[in-house]
Design a protein around this nucleic acid. Structure first.
Lengths: 254, 254
DNA sequence: TGTACATCAGTGAACGCGCGTTCACTGATGTAC
DNA sequence: TGTACATCAGTGAACGCGCGTTCACTGATGTAC
């Protein structure tokens, strides 16, 4: 590493300096152009050379802003995770105080709406892993971003849902996981409230996992077009899932 | 199109002729080599030039067997759909006569096992659509292949599950779809039996759709590694889904 | 059984393409004294 | 306020690479009479 190496990875020291502001602006424009290519032709269509051309720059100029193609993809993936999580979080705040069953449907609908509005970004984080791309460690945590609000909603179950039997093993696993991992307890507490009992938290985690799998499954089939030729409204399918889950976890309806 | 054009798309007229048998064998070897590359580096790693090299052939030789890269991909996708459907169908036959709830879990487990055994093939049909690739019309029907056995199992619900309310809209949609589309009725009848009532068929279709979304969601999250760092057994999550669905559709347990 | 012909598998050279990335550089912008 | 220097954005040429696909061809295998 000589001193000529561009400091693509180094964070700006003074974020408000005019040069750094310009820098951030260009970075954003690069990502935006990349997203346009992603929308058109998928991940493989995201090419530094073409991004540069679209922006009226020469190819090597982009190396001032990203160390390479992988770092650009990492940024896009990070953004997508955060954006999806923000969409769900916004929905949670808009329906705070309403019955839990209503909140569950609202969260699921918010996630679906986000995915349908930008299928390419959804597929970037939920579809096939990008070939030859190694996810940085911090994206592992980020992937759980959209899950938090679901934990909060499903932890409100008045009685432990475990008594039905089917969910007991899963709840037990979540209970052990939360007990063993302080970071998970903290994270869950942000959504359940600090006063929630360990049982409620474990129930919330298990329910969120079930909800996540159901919502992701439904939305993913819809986004990838696998419902083509089938006579149903995808929204009705999603609602059947959330309704049943609400019933199963005895979420408040009124 | 001159007469020199290779008849890559034309089916062999006499499948038992020695030349045609050799031809089929080479076609199979090409696909097998392509699958190895798919497993290593994803769809983008499937390249005619490299397949040829791996087989000890020159690149253009492959054009005797496939009209181009897209046709090869189509063949791989078709095979994957058929193979997945066969895995589920085999499971159905092995557990015929057992309680419906048991069958549902067996089908789900079979699908999961198939996907885990060959994640790349699963992602080929269930992950992000291949960029720039246009699916031939016949794959749309093939995509429903693994769904049939689920229809059969879930149509055995003794009472219409619609009474719970949550599933009523979906069942109504399936009912209308089956009523309007003879091909769907025929297809469903292969699994429900011809004597099944329209209500049972509609219930089976709705249940199968729910099961499909749940299984796909769970398996897809597992295959793409999104459960990394979470303290649960993916199989337990899948079983919680099928158990609850069996309860909801009142499937026989004994 | 032999001969003439048609079919087919496979080759090697060549096409144009776009890609990620490195390198040495120019000129503009900011900073320290 | 002016001057000397450091930092940074961006350029143009070049690298090697692998890709899909076309083309005119050679030689082996099958087929009709």
């Amino acid at each position: 590493m000589t001193s000529r190496t561009p400091k693509a990875t180094a964070p700006p020291r003074t974020p408000s300096s005019p040069r750094d502001r310009y820098r951030e602006q260009t970075r954003a424009e690069i990502k935006q152009t990349a997203l346009a290519q992603l929308a058109e032709g998928g991940v493989e269509a995201v090419a530094l050379t073409r991004i540069a051309k679209a922006m009226g720059l020469s190819g090597p100029a982009l190396y001032r802003y990203f160390a390479g193609r992988d770092e650009l993809l990492s940024a896009l993936i990070r953004d997508a995770y955060d954006d999806a999580a923000a969409a769900v979080e916004t929905a949670r705040q808009s329906c705070a105080g309403r019955p839990a069953a209503v909140q569950l449907t609202a969260l699921a609908d918010a996630f679906r709406a986000w995915a349908l509005a930008q299928p390419h970004r959804y597929l970037l984080i939920a579809g096939s892993p990008v070939a030859g791309y190694q996810a940085p460690p911090d994206t592992v945590d980020r992937a759980r971003g959209a899950l938090g609000p679901f934990v909060g909603v499903l932890a409100t179950s008045p009685r432990p849902a475990a008594e039905s039997g089917a969910d007991a093993p899963l709840i037990a696993e979540m209970s052990a996981w939360a007990a063993a991992t302080p970071a998970v307890r903290e994270w869950a507490a942000r959504y359940t409230g600090a006063e929630a009992s360990p049982e409620a938290v474990a129930t919330g985690l298990a329910g969120a996992l079930l909800a996540w799998a159901q919502v992701h499954g439904t939305v993913s089939l819809e986004v990838t077009g696998q419902f083509t030729g089938m006579g149903h409204d995808p929204a009705a399918l999603l609602h059947a899932q959330t309704e049943a889950l609400a019933e199963r976890f005895r979420l408040a309806r009124e």
